[in-house]
């Protein structure tokens, strides 16, 4: 199987976000960057499929030069190859633009890919849109937020989470899958893997070299504002007393003051 996995470099989930108000951008200095947590499930699933069925796993990232570190992490987990689609545009919060870059890459460099794996959502732009958009641009079926996947011959089955239920999706290959927590338990890199990953050459393809027209990669999202949410006022503490007194005071407040029950 020829599997492509798309990963994104994002700020650590423990990060405090600061905003540069003039440029309406996030202050990147001092932030620790990691592979987007959901993408690790996608890498792990690709490795497991390769181990079961043979083939090749290529990890791909659209981003700045620094995303090479993110790709090395996936190589250290066991991916065979990595490619950086180097993008001079900073986070534009525009999923169509990224999907067009990925679709152009797949069409020109990996037209025989069987499976395109993504994390269900980056923990940065939170769009959860690039997998579905890529699937549409390439005319492929999609299954998103997948917690179980099986592939046999030229077809597959995916189980995806919806509100209060699980949907079972049958699809033909090639297909686009986005991975959700629960799909697997991502492995840690081994020392051997880390050493091997360091030695690998990662080809860098500038986004401009993918044959897209300039208007296709011009961001369609216009950022009008970026702010941190207003911090909440400290709330009311229930008076110290017995649990029964605290519970009575709380229910009275929820009923008479907040009017939510």
């Amino acid at each position: 199987m020829n599997i492509l996995v798309f990963v994104k470099r994002v700020p650590d989930t423990e990060s405090k976000i600061r905003i540069h108000h003039e440029t309406k951008t996030v202050v990147e200095e001092g932030l620790n960057f990691i592979i987007s947590p959901n993408d690790e499930f996608a890498v792990e699933e690709a490795l497991r499929l390769r181990e079961a069925k043979g083939g090749q796993v290529t990890v791909v990232s659209v981003g700045p030069e620094e995303a090479l570190t993110t790709l090395r992490k996936a190589l250290a987990m066991g991916a065979d190859e990595a490619v950086l689609l180097k993008d001079g545009v900073k986070e534009a919060y525009d999923p169509l633009r990224v999907a067009r870059v990925i679709a152009a890459f797949v069409r020109t460099k990996h037209p025989a890919a069987d499976l395109l794996l993504f994390g269900r959502m980056s923990v940065w732009a939170d769009n959860s849109a690039v997998p579905a958009m890529t699937a549409e641009l390439l005319g492929l079926p999609q299954a998103s937020v997948v917690t179980k996947l099986s592939v046999e011959g030229g077809a597959g089955t995916a189980w995806r989470e919806v509100e209060g239920a699980v949907e079972k999706i049958a699809f033909s290959l090639p297909a686009v899958i986005s991975a959700q927590k629960g799909l697997n338990e991502p492995r840690y890199e081994t020392l051997k893997g880390i050493m091997a990953a360091k030695k690998k050459t990662i080809p860098v393809i500038p986004v401009a070299d993918l044959g897209l027209a300039p208007e296709e990669t011009a961001p369609q999202v216009e950022v009008a504002g970026l702010e941190t949410p207003a911090s909440k006022q400290a709330g009311k503490m229930m008076p110290a007393g017995t649990p029964e007194e605290a519970a009575a005071a709380l229910v009275a407040a929820l009923r008479n003051e907040a009017k939510v029950i």
């Binding site: 996030v26 216009e222 950022v223 941190t228």
Partner: peptide, 9 residues
């Protein structure tokens, strides 16, 4: 960022 920032677009 799961609500750590609000983007207006």
């Amino acid at each position: 960022y799961a609500g750590k920032a609000l983007l207006t677009l």
